[in-house]
Protein backbone atom coordinates (compact mmCIF):
# COMPACT_ATOMS: atom_id res chain seq x y z
CA UNK A 1 0.00 0.00 0.00
CA UNK A 2 2.78 2.34 0.99
CA UNK A 3 4.56 1.64 -2.25
CA UNK A 4 1.50 2.56 -4.24
CA UNK A 5 1.37 5.94 -2.62
CA UNK A 6 5.03 6.57 -3.36
CA UNK A 7 4.49 5.62 -7.00
CA UNK A 8 1.52 7.96 -7.16
CA UNK A 9 3.46 10.84 -5.68
CA UNK A 10 6.40 10.30 -8.00
CA UNK A 11 4.03 10.13 -10.97
CA UNK A 12 2.34 13.31 -9.91
CA UNK A 13 5.66 15.11 -9.63
CA UNK A 14 6.78 13.92 -13.05
CA UNK A 15 3.49 14.99 -14.61
CA UNK A 16 3.67 18.42 -13.00
CA UNK A 17 7.23 18.93 -14.24
CA UNK A 18 6.13 17.83 -17.72
CA UNK A 19 3.26 20.30 -17.67
CA UNK A 20 5.49 23.19 -16.65
CA UNK A 21 8.05 22.21 -19.26
CA UNK A 22 5.38 22.03 -21.97
CA UNK A 23 3.68 25.26 -21.09
CA UNK A 24 6.77 27.35 -20.32
CA UNK A 25 7.55 28.52 -23.88
CA UNK A 26 3.88 28.67 -24.84
CA UNK A 27 2.85 30.92 -21.98
CA UNK A 28 5.83 33.17 -22.67
CA UNK A 29 4.81 33.56 -26.30
CA UNK A 30 1.18 34.18 -25.34
CA UNK A 31 2.13 36.93 -22.89
CA UNK A 32 4.65 38.42 -25.31
CA UNK A 33 2.02 38.69 -27.98
CA UNK A 34 0.16 41.11 -25.71
CA UNK A 35 3.19 43.24 -24.86
CA UNK A 36 4.05 46.59 -26.37
CA UNK A 37 7.48 46.65 -28.08
CA UNK A 38 9.16 48.47 -25.22
CA UNK A 39 8.05 45.86 -22.75
CA UNK A 40 9.72 43.07 -24.73
CA UNK A 41 13.10 44.35 -23.65
CA UNK A 42 12.81 44.76 -19.90
CA UNK A 43 15.65 43.31 -17.85
CA UNK A 44 15.02 41.12 -15.97
CA UNK A 45 12.21 39.86 -18.19
CA UNK A 46 8.67 40.15 -16.90
CA UNK A 47 6.18 37.44 -17.71
CA UNK A 48 2.93 39.35 -17.35
CA UNK A 49 2.69 42.53 -19.39
CA UNK A 50 2.14 45.66 -17.37
CA UNK A 51 -0.31 46.85 -19.96
CA UNK A 52 -2.10 44.34 -22.15
CA UNK A 53 -2.12 45.66 -25.68
CA UNK A 54 -3.70 44.32 -28.83
CA UNK A 55 -1.16 46.23 -30.94
CA UNK A 56 0.51 43.10 -32.29
CA UNK A 57 -2.75 41.50 -33.33
CA UNK A 58 -3.92 44.77 -34.84
CA UNK A 59 -0.77 44.94 -36.94
CA UNK A 60 -1.34 41.41 -38.10
CA UNK A 61 -5.00 41.70 -38.93
CA UNK A 62 -4.90 45.18 -40.42
CA UNK A 63 -2.38 44.07 -43.03
CA UNK A 64 -4.23 42.51 -45.94
CA UNK A 65 -1.12 40.63 -46.95
CA UNK A 66 -0.77 38.92 -43.57
CA UNK A 67 -4.38 37.95 -43.52
CA UNK A 68 -3.95 36.57 -46.98
CA UNK A 69 -1.17 34.23 -45.86
CA UNK A 70 -3.65 32.71 -43.46
CA UNK A 71 -6.03 31.93 -46.30
CA UNK A 72 -3.14 30.73 -48.44
CA UNK A 73 -2.24 28.29 -45.70
CA UNK A 74 -5.84 27.10 -45.53
CA UNK A 75 -6.00 26.68 -49.30
CA UNK A 76 -2.68 24.88 -49.63
CA UNK A 77 -3.39 22.64 -46.67
CA UNK A 78 -6.90 21.71 -47.78
CA UNK A 79 -5.92 20.99 -51.37
CA UNK A 80 -2.90 18.92 -50.51
CA UNK A 81 -4.82 17.00 -47.88
CA UNK A 82 -7.61 16.22 -50.33
CA UNK A 83 -4.99 15.11 -52.84
CA UNK A 84 -3.38 12.94 -50.19
CA UNK A 85 -6.68 11.25 -49.40
CA UNK A 86 -7.65 10.76 -53.05
CA UNK A 87 -4.34 9.14 -53.86
CA UNK A 88 -3.66 7.61 -50.50
CA UNK A 89 -6.85 5.81 -49.53
CA UNK A 90 -7.11 3.53 -52.59
CA UNK A 91 -3.43 2.73 -52.45
CA UNK A 92 -3.60 1.93 -48.75
CA UNK A 93 -6.58 -0.27 -49.38
CA UNK A 94 -4.79 -2.01 -52.22
CA UNK A 95 -1.74 -2.62 -50.10
CA UNK A 96 -3.74 -3.87 -47.15
CA UNK A 97 -5.96 -6.24 -49.10
CA UNK A 98 -3.83 -7.84 -51.79
CA UNK A 99 -0.80 -10.00 -51.66
CA UNK A 100 1.53 -8.89 -54.32
CA UNK A 101 5.10 -9.98 -54.72
CA UNK A 102 6.32 -6.41 -55.19
CA UNK A 103 4.47 -5.08 -52.18
CA UNK A 104 7.73 -4.74 -50.26
CA UNK A 105 9.33 -2.62 -52.92
CA UNK A 106 6.25 -0.49 -52.93
CA UNK A 107 6.26 -0.02 -49.19
CA UNK A 108 9.90 0.84 -49.45
CA UNK A 109 9.32 3.55 -52.05
CA UNK A 110 6.44 5.00 -50.07
CA UNK A 111 8.39 5.03 -46.85
CA UNK A 112 11.48 6.43 -48.50
CA UNK A 113 9.47 9.24 -50.05
CA UNK A 114 8.30 10.08 -46.57
CA UNK A 115 11.75 9.94 -45.04
CA UNK A 116 13.73 11.86 -47.66
CA UNK A 117 15.09 15.15 -46.32
CA UNK A 118 13.18 18.03 -47.96
CA UNK A 119 16.40 19.81 -48.80
CA UNK A 120 17.17 17.12 -51.38
CA UNK A 121 14.03 17.98 -53.33
CA UNK A 122 13.69 21.70 -52.99
CA UNK A 123 16.07 22.99 -55.65
CA UNK A 124 14.84 20.74 -58.48
CA UNK A 125 11.30 21.61 -57.46
CA UNK A 126 12.01 25.31 -57.79
CA UNK A 127 13.73 25.08 -61.15
CA UNK A 128 11.18 22.69 -62.65
CA UNK A 129 8.27 24.83 -61.57
CA UNK A 130 9.97 27.83 -63.16
CA UNK A 131 10.51 25.94 -66.41
CA UNK A 132 6.85 24.97 -66.43
CA UNK A 133 5.85 28.58 -65.76
CA UNK A 134 4.10 27.58 -62.58
CA UNK A 135 5.84 29.99 -60.25
CA UNK A 136 3.48 32.50 -58.73
CA UNK A 137 0.73 29.88 -58.63
CA UNK A 138 -0.25 27.60 -55.80
CA UNK A 139 0.53 24.48 -57.79
CA UNK A 140 4.21 23.98 -56.81
CA UNK A 141 3.61 24.34 -53.10
CA UNK A 142 0.48 22.18 -53.16
CA UNK A 143 2.29 19.44 -55.07
CA UNK A 144 5.27 19.70 -52.74
CA UNK A 145 3.08 19.37 -49.67
CA UNK A 146 1.20 16.42 -51.12
CA UNK A 147 4.52 14.83 -51.93
CA UNK A 148 4.98 14.51 -48.17
CA UNK A 149 1.39 13.78 -47.27
CA UNK A 150 0.49 11.17 -49.90
CA UNK A 151 3.03 8.59 -48.66
CA UNK A 152 2.02 9.42 -45.14
CA UNK A 153 -1.65 8.84 -45.90
CA UNK A 154 -0.86 5.50 -47.57
CA UNK A 155 1.26 4.41 -44.65
CA UNK A 156 -1.25 5.41 -42.02
CA UNK A 157 -4.46 4.28 -43.74
CA UNK A 158 -2.96 0.88 -44.46
CA UNK A 159 -2.94 0.20 -40.74
CA UNK A 160 -6.57 1.16 -40.36
CA UNK A 161 -7.65 -0.95 -43.34
CA UNK A 162 -5.88 -4.05 -42.15
CA UNK A 163 -7.85 -3.90 -38.92
CA UNK A 164 -11.13 -4.34 -40.79
CA UNK A 165 -11.74 -8.09 -41.22
CA UNK A 166 -11.89 -9.09 -44.85
CA UNK A 167 -14.88 -11.33 -44.12
CA UNK A 168 -17.08 -8.23 -43.88
CA UNK A 169 -16.40 -7.32 -47.47
CA UNK A 170 -16.75 -10.88 -48.62
CA UNK A 171 -20.17 -11.02 -47.05
CA UNK A 172 -21.13 -7.87 -48.89
CA UNK A 173 -19.86 -9.22 -52.16
CA UNK A 174 -21.86 -12.39 -51.73
CA UNK A 175 -24.86 -10.09 -51.43
CA UNK A 176 -23.99 -8.77 -54.89
CA UNK A 177 -21.78 -5.78 -54.21
CA UNK A 178 -18.73 -5.16 -56.38
CA UNK A 179 -15.41 -4.79 -54.61
CA UNK A 180 -15.58 -1.04 -55.10
CA UNK A 181 -19.08 -0.89 -53.64
CA UNK A 182 -17.97 -3.03 -50.73
CA UNK A 183 -15.14 -0.58 -50.16
CA UNK A 184 -17.27 2.54 -50.25
CA UNK A 185 -20.32 1.17 -48.46
CA UNK A 186 -18.86 -1.14 -45.85
CA UNK A 187 -15.19 -0.46 -45.29
CA UNK A 188 -14.91 3.30 -45.58
CA UNK A 189 -17.56 4.07 -42.96
CA UNK A 190 -15.71 1.74 -40.60
CA UNK A 191 -12.38 3.47 -41.09
CA UNK A 192 -13.88 6.94 -40.86
CA UNK A 193 -12.12 7.72 -37.56
CA UNK A 194 -8.89 6.64 -39.21
CA UNK A 195 -9.56 8.90 -42.17
CA UNK A 196 -10.18 11.87 -39.91
CA UNK A 197 -6.95 11.26 -38.00
CA UNK A 198 -5.06 10.80 -41.26
CA UNK A 199 -6.41 14.01 -42.72
CA UNK A 200 -5.49 15.93 -39.60
CA UNK A 201 -1.95 14.63 -39.66
CA UNK A 202 -1.64 15.28 -43.41
CA UNK A 203 -2.96 18.77 -42.79
CA UNK A 204 -0.40 19.17 -40.03
CA UNK A 205 2.40 18.24 -42.44
CA UNK A 206 1.28 20.77 -45.04
CA UNK A 207 0.36 23.52 -42.63
CA UNK A 208 3.72 23.35 -40.88
CA UNK A 209 5.89 22.89 -43.99
CA UNK A 210 8.59 25.54 -43.99
CA UNK A 211 11.52 24.92 -46.33
CA UNK A 212 9.39 24.30 -49.43
CA UNK A 213 7.16 27.22 -48.58
CA UNK A 214 10.19 29.45 -48.11
CA UNK A 215 11.60 28.63 -51.53
CA UNK A 216 8.48 27.97 -53.60
CA UNK A 217 6.06 30.67 -52.52
CA UNK A 218 6.03 34.31 -53.53
CA UNK A 219 4.16 37.38 -52.42
CA UNK A 220 0.73 36.05 -53.38
CA UNK A 221 1.14 32.44 -52.33
CA UNK A 222 3.08 32.81 -49.09
CA UNK A 223 1.99 30.63 -46.18
CA UNK A 224 2.02 31.27 -42.43
CA UNK A 225 5.32 29.59 -41.44
CA UNK A 226 7.17 31.86 -43.87
CA UNK A 227 5.31 34.87 -42.57
CA UNK A 228 6.49 34.16 -39.02
CA UNK A 229 10.00 34.55 -40.35
CA UNK A 230 9.17 37.82 -42.11
CA UNK A 231 9.33 39.88 -38.97
CA UNK A 232 13.06 39.33 -38.86
CA UNK A 233 14.75 41.87 -41.08
CA UNK A 234 18.43 42.63 -41.46
CA UNK A 235 18.41 45.06 -38.59
CA UNK A 236 15.36 44.47 -36.53
CA UNK A 237 13.12 41.80 -35.01
CA UNK A 238 9.56 42.56 -33.97
CA UNK A 239 9.11 39.94 -31.25
CA UNK A 240 5.56 41.02 -30.45
CA UNK A 241 4.06 40.68 -33.92
CA UNK A 242 6.11 37.55 -34.42
CA UNK A 243 4.58 36.06 -31.27
CA UNK A 244 1.11 36.97 -32.45
CA UNK A 245 1.78 35.47 -35.87
CA UNK A 246 3.21 32.36 -34.25
CA UNK A 247 0.09 31.87 -32.16
CA UNK A 248 -2.18 32.45 -35.14
CA UNK A 249 -0.14 29.82 -36.96
CA UNK A 250 -0.37 27.16 -34.28
CA UNK A 251 -3.88 27.52 -32.86
CA UNK A 252 -5.87 25.90 -35.69
CA UNK A 253 -3.65 22.84 -35.68
CA UNK A 254 -3.77 22.48 -31.92
CA UNK A 255 -7.57 22.57 -32.02
CA UNK A 256 -7.83 20.01 -34.82
CA UNK A 257 -5.14 17.82 -33.34
CA UNK A 258 -6.82 17.59 -29.96
CA UNK A 259 -10.12 16.68 -31.61
CA UNK A 260 -8.72 13.46 -33.01
CA UNK A 261 -6.04 12.67 -30.47
CA UNK A 262 -7.15 9.11 -29.76
CA UNK A 263 -6.97 7.95 -33.35
CA UNK A 264 -3.84 9.93 -33.86
CA UNK A 265 -1.82 7.67 -31.61
CA UNK A 266 -3.22 4.62 -33.30
CA UNK A 267 -2.27 5.91 -36.72
CA UNK A 268 1.19 6.92 -35.65
CA UNK A 269 2.01 3.52 -34.27
CA UNK A 270 0.94 1.54 -37.32
CA UNK A 271 3.04 -1.57 -37.53
CA UNK A 272 4.04 -1.74 -33.91
CA UNK A 273 1.28 -4.21 -33.08
CA UNK A 274 2.59 -6.69 -35.54
Amino acid sequence: MNKNIIIKIVSLIIVIIALIWTLYPLVWIIFSSFKAPLEQFTIPPKWIPEKFTLRNYKIFFSNAEFVRTFFNSVLVTTSSTILALIFGIPAAYGLARFNWKHANLLSFIILLARMTPPVVMVLPFFLISRYLNLSGTYIPIIIACSFFSVPFAVWMMQGFFSEIPESLEEAARIDGCTRFEALTKIVLPLVLPGISATSILCALISWNEFLFALVLTGQETRTLPVLVNMFVSEKNVDWGVMSAAALITVIPMIVFGLLVQNNLVKGLTVGSEK
Binding site: L204, N208, F210, V250, I254
Partner: peptide, 9 residues
Protein backbone atom coordinates in the same frame (compact mmCIF):
# COMPACT_ATOMS: atom_id res chain seq x y z
CA UNK B 1 0.28 20.35 -27.83
CA UNK B 2 3.97 20.81 -28.79
CA UNK B 3 3.63 18.03 -31.35
CA UNK B 4 1.06 20.12 -33.27
CA UNK B 5 3.24 23.21 -33.42
CA UNK B 6 5.12 24.11 -36.56
CA UNK B 7 8.88 23.55 -36.11
CA UNK B 8 9.43 27.14 -37.25
CA UNK B 9 7.37 28.37 -34.34
Amino acid sequence: IPFMIAPVV
